[in-house]
Amino acid sequence: MSDVSVVGGGVIGLTVAHELAAEGHAVTVIAARDHRASVSSVAAAIWFPHDVAPTPRVLASGEASYRRFVQLAADPSTGVRLRHGTVVHRRPDPDLSWTSAVPGTAVAQTVPEGATGVRCLLPLAVTDAYLAWLQKQVQGLGVRFEARTVASLDDVAGDVVVVAAGLGSAALLGGDDELYPIRGQVVRLANPGLTDWWLDGDNPAGLTYVVPRDHDVVCGGTDDVGSWDESTHADVEAAVLARVTALVPELAGQPVLSRAAGLRPARTSVRLERVDGHARPVIACYGHGGAGFTLSWGEAADVVRLVQQSEPARRN
């Protein structure tokens, strides 16, 4: 078994660390910010391949993660919930490739005028509860944590290094012109008793989603390609609130509990591969856009396979 350093403490990094440690590897997670300050904490965290190219490998990864989340939802302490909702489509030829991973999808009977939709059951994660649970599980497997910034892979120990640092991954790997930020802003409202979610990515007024959790409703959002702005803006929030209340009138007048903005690490395609040119195995795992939770368990399984494939070469 290898000593593996995972650079990145968001949902991808923590899940990769979990699966490597479960296989018996000695794992260290290195991150300047823990999960509470990562973009993962901002996410609505509903299973859906948003802002990610739906390649066959990505769809397989999403399907594996869907199955794992369904298992986790049986234990309320994980923070994973299974909820029904509607994916709204406003184009004549919507991409339905994601439905292959989701059993029991059906044509939605209630959608905005002029739209179609899919009704289904999806997992979602109450982010603070889920990420805290995941970190506790990882620690229970003996994973070590180092809170520091990594400027170079030369500063990282271990037989194998996994780079899962989101937008920070490119600098550690000598650059990546295909990686870019997509800014997302959300506002969290008090939950008036909603359980059904709505995803309306084709809304002509802007990206719109409503994701009820235990005590709040995550309302979004924005898809600001190329923006590095992590601050929230009142005019953007007002526009989000107008869209979500038009879609779900019960949200009108609900108090704002919190607000946030984060940068999705998007890429022309997810990068999950061994990176050549290093004296030891270095594995890249980043570029998941708005689908970090959606792909996390499947991606972690693929990282484990790459690490195991690298071990004979390392020993030789």
Rank of each mutant, 00 (worst) to 15 (best):
residue 3 D to S: 12
residue 11 V to N: 00
residue 13 G to A: 04
residue 17 A to M: 02
residue 20 L to S: 05
residue 21 A to Q: 02
residue 22 A to E: 12
residue 26 A to W: 08
residue 27 V to P: 07
residue 29 V to E: 00
residue 32 A to F: 07
residue 32 A to G: 13
residue 39 V to G: 13
residue 49 P to N: 04
residue 55 T to I: 10
residue 56 P to G: 02
residue 58 V to C: 07
residue 59 L to C: 04
residue 61 S to H: 08
residue 67 R to V: 11
residue 69 F to T: 05
residue 76 P to R: 01
residue 79 G to M: 11
residue 82 L to I: 15
residue 82 L to V: 11
residue 83 R to P: 09
residue 86 T to D: 10
residue 87 V to C: 10
residue 88 V to D: 10
residue 90 R to D: 03
residue 93 D to E: 15
residue 97 S to T: 15
residue 98 W to E: 00
residue 100 S to T: 13
residue 111 V to D: 02
residue 114 G to H: 12
residue 114 G to L: 12
residue 120 C to T: 15
residue 120 C to P: 06
residue 122 L to D: 05
residue 126 V to R: 10
residue 130 Y to L: 07
residue 132 A to R: 13
residue 139 Q to D: 14
residue 141 L to N: 07
residue 148 R to N: 01
residue 153 L to V: 03
residue 154 D to L: 13
residue 154 D to Q: 14
residue 174 G to K: 08
residue 178 E to Q: 15
residue 181 P to W: 01
residue 193 G to P: 08
residue 199 L to Q: 09
residue 204 P to K: 00
residue 205 A to Y: 07
residue 214 D to K: 10
residue 218 V to I: 15
residue 222 T to Y: 09
residue 225 V to C: 09
residue 226 G to V: 12
residue 231 S to F: 07
residue 236 V to A: 09
residue 239 A to L: 12
residue 244 V to W: 02
residue 247 L to K: 10
residue 248 V to W: 04
residue 261 A to I: 12
residue 262 G to N: 04
residue 266 A to Y: 03
residue 268 T to Y: 08
residue 274 R to A: 14
residue 277 G to F: 01
residue 284 A to I: 01
residue 286 Y to N: 04
residue 287 G to L: 08
residue 289 G to A: 14
residue 294 T to Q: 09
residue 303 V to T: 09
residue 308 Q to R: 15
residue 309 Q to K: 13
residue 310 S to W: 02
residue 310 S to H: 05
